[in-house]
Amino acid sequence: MARRRTLRPDEEELWQAVARSAQPLHPQRIRSHTPKAESAQHMVEAKGHSPAIPHFRVGEKARHVPGHDILPALRDQLATQPLRMDAKSFARMSRGKLSPEARIDLHGMTLTEAHPELIRFVLNAHADGLRLVLVITGKGSRRPDDHGPIPQRQGVLRHQVPLWLRMPPLGAVVLQVAVAHLRHGGDGAYYVYLRRGR
């Protein structure tokens, strides 16, 4: 099958003359020979809108575009989750007014070490009838920004623990997860509010 190519200006002019004189067999199915990108560009220009991509000339210095993170911060992710516990208790917990009944420190553990420890701790706390526990993850080691093709976030445990707390078997016993108040560790710890035992 022959590949489609772009028409030269003289060929384009000839094609337009032929196209104007032709009668379509099926007027409802008229298709243009121009590629979709070109026709979309012509439509944008015809409507008077400027293209979304800024104009750039060869040899011109590239404008620095600051990197952006499409994933919201952990604090924002947790804040957008629905409130499943009493609003007054949640407000007191967020301000650090409620004291955790137990705590676990996952600081310095690998993901494979931390996951079973977290499961054991939370399920035991729920079995013991505890309601509020503190999970300390740490903020992660400081390192320069990662600009690789697949950037890795600082504080792997800090980002993984909220996911584990929503997944089975912990999701069934966890009612609410929130970032801890500064007096209990701030961004390096989470309050985990557990459901009542049955």
Rank of each mutant, 00 (worst) to 15 (best):
Met1Gln: 10
Met1Pro: 09
Met1Asp: 09
Ala2Arg: 13
Arg3Lys: 12
Arg3Leu: 11
Thr6Val: 11
Leu7Met: 11
Leu7Gln: 05
Glu11Val: 02
Leu14Val: 12
Leu14Trp: 11
Leu14Gln: 13
Gln16Asn: 11
Val18Trp: 09
Val18Gly: 07
Val18Cys: 10
Val18Met: 10
Arg20Ser: 12
Ser21Thr: 12
Gln23Asn: 14
His26Val: 14
Pro27Phe: 00
Ile30Glu: 15
Thr34Ala: 15
Lys36Thr: 15
Lys36Pro: 13
Ala37Val: 12
Ser39Gly: 12
Ala40Asp: 14
Ala40Pro: 04
His42Ala: 14
Met43Ala: 15
Glu45Trp: 15
Gly48Asp: 05
Gly48Phe: 07
His49Asp: 13
Ser50Leu: 12
Ala52Asp: 13
His55Thr: 15
Arg57Phe: 12
Arg57Ile: 13
Arg57Gln: 15
Val58Trp: 11
Gly59Pro: 02
Arg63Leu: 09
Arg63Phe: 07
Arg63Gly: 08
His64Met: 10
Val65Asp: 02
His68Ala: 14
His68Arg: 15
Ile70Asp: 15
Ile70Ala: 13
Leu71Ile: 13
Leu71Glu: 08
Leu74Cys: 00
Arg75Thr: 09
Asp76Leu: 05
Leu78Asp: 02
Thr80Gln: 09
Thr80Lys: 06
Gln81Trp: 03
Pro82His: 06
Arg84Trp: 08
Met85His: 04
Met85Arg: 10
Met85Gly: 08
Ala87His: 06
Lys88Gln: 14
Met93Tyr: 03
Met93Arg: 08
Ser94Ile: 07
Arg95Ser: 09
Arg95Ala: 12
Lys97Thr: 07
Pro100Thr: 05
Pro100Met: 03
Glu101His: 05
Glu101Ala: 04
Ile104Ser: 04
Ile104Pro: 01
Asp105Leu: 05
Leu106Arg: 05
His107Leu: 02
His107Thr: 07
Met109Arg: 14
Thr110Tyr: 00
Thr110Pro: 03
Leu111Val: 10
Ala114Tyr: 02
Pro116Cys: 02
Val122Lys: 03
Val122Thr: 01
Leu123Asn: 06
Ala125Leu: 04
Asp128Ile: 01
Leu130Cys: 02
Leu130Asn: 00
Arg131Cys: 00
Arg131Pro: 04
Val133Lys: 06
Leu134His: 06
Leu134Gly: 01
Ile136Pro: 00
Ile136Cys: 04
Thr137Gly: 00
Gly138Arg: 06
Lys139Ser: 03
Gly140Ala: 07
Pro144Val: 06
Asp145His: 14
Asp145Met: 15
His147Val: 06
His147Thr: 10
Gly148Glu: 04
Pro149Ile: 13
Pro149Arg: 14
Arg153Met: 11
Arg153Lys: 15
Gln154Ala: 08
Gln154Cys: 07
Val156Phe: 07
His159Trp: 05
His159Ser: 06
Pro162Glu: 06
Leu163Glu: 09
Trp164Phe: 00
Leu165Val: 03
Met167His: 13
Pro168Arg: 12
Pro169Trp: 00
Pro169Phe: 01
Leu170Ile: 02
Leu170Glu: 01
Ala172Leu: 12
Ala172Ser: 15
Val174Glu: 00
Leu175Trp: 10
Gln176Thr: 08
Gln176Val: 07
Val177Trp: 05
Ala178Ser: 10
Ala180Leu: 04
Leu182Ala: 14
Arg183Ser: 06
His184Gln: 04
His184Met: 03
Gly185Phe: 04
Gly186Thr: 01
Gly186Asp: 03
Asp187Gly: 13
Tyr193His: 13
Leu194Ile: 01
Leu194His: 02
Arg198Thr: 13
Arg198Gln: 11
